[in-house]
């Protein structure tokens, strides 16, 4: 399931819900991305996430489907927030459930690597006297490429 929202999320609540609605769950893997308190060595005031509504849903559904083709997943959830967030705030949540650990762990890793470079989101970091759009990192591209999507 895909949710793109401004509201915060709870890992505990979402995990409990997913375990409750599936049978035979043997493994749950999760990832949370959080707003750091520094941007290029400066104290971060806020991070604003812009996205392309419509395309976000389409692309996230497509990649979630890819994860199901590659691994034996029982269920999955991606929550990605947008709007203005502050240091310590949650940005993104990925949860994957399977019978055995490798499927859940690898699918979770795959989904977050993909989100870093192909999720249609753009981050604007505001510091005390300035602000800038975050540039994509080549290291993230390399991480994503290893999955050969």
């Amino acid at each position: 399931m895909i949710k793109v929202q401004t509201e915060n999320f709870s890992l505990e609540k979402e995990t409990k819900n997913l375990i409750h609605k599936n049978n035979n769950v043997g493994a749950v893997s999760s990832f949370i991305g959080i707003v750091r308190d520094k941007a290029k060595e400066k104290d971060l005031i806020s991070m604003t996430l812009e996205h392309y509504p419509g395309m976000t849903q389409t692309m996230l559904k497509k990649i979630e489907k890819q994860a199901y083709l590659r691994w034996k997943l029982l269920d999955s959830l991606i929550i990605h927030r947008y709007g203005e967030l502050f240091p310590g705030d949650n940005i993104v949540l990925v949860i994957t459930l399977s019978k055995h650990r490798k499927d859940a762990i690898n699918a979770c890793h795959f989904l977050i690597d993909w989100l870093k470079t192909k999720g249609p989101f753009w981050k604007y970091e505001k510091t005390k006297n300035s602000g800038h759009w975050v540039e994509a990192l080549e290291s993230d591209n390399l991480e994503e490429k290893k999955w050969d999507i």
């Binding site: 991305g33 996205h51 392309y52 419509g54 395309m55 389409t58 692309m59 990605h80 940005i91 993104v92 977050i112 989100l115 870093k116 470079t117 192909k118 999720g119 249609p120 989101f121 753009w122 981050k123 759009w133 975050v134 540039e135 994509a136 591209n141």
Partner: peptide, 28 residues
């Protein structure tokens, strides 16, 4: 992108399409 799908620079377009321009994504 054309109609919310990533495309190449030589993609054919017409007046009914929605085209978007953006820098490399920085999600997650």
């Amino acid at each position: 992108s054309k109609n919310m799908n990533l495309v190449n620079i030589d993609e054919m377009i017409d007046n009914d399409d929605e085209i978007a321009f953006f820098p490399p994504m920085t999600g997650g």
